[in-house]
Design a protein around this nucleic acid. Structure first.
Lengths: 344, 344
DNA sequence: TTGTAAGCGTTATCAG
DNA sequence: CTGATAACGCTTACAA
């Protein structure tokens, strides 16, 4: 008979003593493992006295349940995934924070991954992640609908800042935010605005452009949309010449990163902001108030989105299904990059 | 006999079909599960033909190994933890990116957690994380040596930006970075400098202060250290008055966040930078080049630190032990917040 | 080269 | 209220 079969494997990676199991507790108390298991996670279904003894020795032995072992029979790992397109993009900071917090409160562990630019999904990372989690929050703008559906076929999914038919999604109140922006500009006296869009594959960029277009027309303003190379500072910088060429007196960038790029290029080119050109962004990321002039933007409740997404996911996991919370309210943050147009 | 015992549990959280197991593959090919297992993860130790057939049907069935089930007998989850003190601190972005990348290359999954300010470790999160990973990278300035040792007693640990006796650590070349900073200031003509320190519990803050002190004295400069409330923008802002009171013509902040705070306060108070006061930071975080004037700083190779830490951890896991890589070179990034002192 | 069987730590069913 | 026991999916020593 082979008793120490896995002896060495157990100590993999070091000489740390393996942590106590329910068997150790059971043996110490001369009980059966099943009793220990019950005592520990079905409080009340066992003699109060026994339960207490069990809890005590569990503490003494420094017992911590083995999540892997638990996951096997239950099929639940109590881990949730969060996939973003780019970890270094500041938009995600608050999102991650919110998700982390909600996970903590709900007793889940957050696993975090980056889908990178690669359209074909950086398989490997995602492939490794999926089997390990009970569900995922997708905030990866770079994934296409097809890829998302494929993931959703395997695990429960909640989308952030994007909609795909029939899948739960957490989105800000886009129309509200756009209206805040447009009204602000109109109040300042602008009549011609430009939208510097993000990647055409970005649902959010398209959506903002669409709404912006509608609202602008509605208010009798001139509207043009300008494409960009990339949704970051460099993309914003590169776009300034086109923006100027359009003749618009105010420009709304798809996100703050691009708006910041616009700001920098303006400065380099000697374009006065907001004197000659008003610039606005979306999101209110870290750094938006650091620029000169400080950036006027529409703040998205990203942290809230993160925690809502996790809660929504857990609700589905527990109850089989749940309803999407209503869109999150945005907030207009007026700083220094917007002002009356030169002609006014 | 109970056959469908876990039938419902398996479908936990939805109606998704359970993914294929090695048993399914074995059955389809009329082989034994162990053969399938071997074929899949010990390539070569099996008849080439059989192996090929197995790989094919595995692909057909969309087989993805269950990491939890694998973790049980091996004791290895192939997951690594990364603990930072504050997700929203931009210093960590590049660190996370580096760690993520290295994990991908090495076939590990990164689990990410925040230790928060709570000195007593936000137990729960960390407690849940530890049993699930093979090892952790600790970049959490807020943990004290005692807490770190306790963690190291359970799992393999690699520290970032910090040293604790006998534990592997990845640190930048602090002395080199400090020398770059001091020399830059000296070349500009400064003879009196102030160090705005971070939390006294921060190893890195103490270390930078210490080295700065030595180098300054060595070069015949006047040196004072000023304490702060918090290592962030607010802490920097609050410290300006003390900095001015010290009479120093140049100030080095413990990190860029604080330097940015100093910059903002200076502007608000009408203190000319670098005319009346030169300001430098450490790290070169996102946003350091967005300020006006743009921040001069000593860049730390954070992404490199992240990947080195992971590699170091995996090396320990695999080989039992490894040697620390040599300190990472820093880079002086001269922008606009430093200049000759007024008196010069 | 392949099959058999034990065992990883936990949960859930069924008897006692 | 508690104890056996099978099962979760996979790995590995050992036998064939």
């Amino acid at each position: 008979m082979v008793t120490e079969q896995f002896g060495s494997a157990q100590r993999a990676g070091g000489n740390r003593k393996p942590s106590a199991t329910i068997y150790d507790i059971a043996r110490a108390l001369d009980l059966s493992p099943s009793t220990v298991s019950r005592a520990l996670n079905k409080p009340g279904r066992i003699a109060a006295k026994t339960e207490k003894r069990i809890r005590e020795t569990a503490a003494e032995l420094g017992y911590r349940g083995n999540p892997m072992a638990r996951a096997l029979p239950t099929g639940r790992t109590r881990m949730l995934g969060l996939v973003v397109s780019d970890v270094t993009n500041p938009v995600f900071f608050r999102l991650v924070r919110g998700a982390e917090q909600a996970c903590g409160e709900l007793g889940y562990t957050l696993v975090f991954a980056e889908s990178q630019e690669s359209g074909e999904v950086e398989y490997g990372t995602l492939d490794r992640l999926l089997p390990a989690v009970d569900g995922v929050v997708l905030a990866a703008a770079r994934l296409d609908d097809e890829q998302i559906r494929r993931i959703a076929a395997t695990k429960d999914v909640v989308l952030v800042n994007r909609r795909v038919e029939d899948l739960p999604a957490i989105v800000p109140d886009i129309d509200g935010g756009v209206a805040q922006a447009i009204d602000h500009l109109r109040d300042l006296g602008h009549t011609s605005i430009a939208y510097l869009s993000g990647p055409t594959t970005s649902w959010m960029s398209r959506e903002r452009g669409e709404r912006l277009f509608e609202r602008a027309v509605e208010r009798g303003m001139t509207f043009v949309e300008i494409g960009s190379a990339s949704p970051d500072v460099a993309g914003g910088e590169a776009a300034l010449r086109r923006v100027r060429a359009s003749g618009a007196t105010a420009v709304l960038a798809y996100n703050d990163l691009m708006a910041i790029g616009l700001l920098r290029a303006s400065r380099a080119e000697g374009v006065a902001v907001p004197g000659e050109l008003s610039i606005m962004g979306f999101d209110d990321i870290f750094g938006a108030d650091l620029t000169t002039p400080a950036l006027t933007t529409v703040r998205s409740p990203l942290d809230r989105a993160g925690s809502d997404a996790i809660r929504r996911l857990v609700a589905t996991l527990d109850a089989g299904d749940a309803a999407d919370p209503s869109p999150l309210a945005t907030e207009l943050v007026i700083r220094e990059s917007t002002g009356a147009p030169a002609s006014a």
